[in-house]
């Protein structure tokens, strides 16, 4: 687990407190009913605060799993 993934895991742990940390990497909107629109807004706020970029809301529908969010964050951080 690299630094970005570790930080992202911390973000997800804050937004999804009921999900065991070991399962966060496999988390997706489809597998977790609590990942609703409000949770998505929370996640956006946490990610923007943690990584310091402004998240493109157009991309939000695509960011429906830990894996996809991780790839998105990597892309933003590497810019």
């Amino acid at each position: 687990m690299d630094e970005i993934e570790r930080r992202l895991t911390t973000c997800f742990a804050g937004v999804f407190p009921d999900v065991p940390v070991a399962e966060l990497r496999r988390l997706s909107q489809a597998s977790n009913a609590s990942w609703d629109s409000i949770t998505a807004i929370t996640l956006v706020a946490v990610l923007e605060e943690e990584f310091g970029f402004e998240l493109d809301f157009e991309a939000l529908p695509e960011l429906d799993s830990f894996e996809r969010v991780l790839n998105y964050v990597r892309g933003q951080v590497e810019r």
Partner: peptide
């Protein structure tokens, strides 16, 4: 914000 979330949890 993340700390606020954790505090409430």
């Amino acid at each position: 914000f993340i700390d606020a979330l954790k505090t409430l949890q």
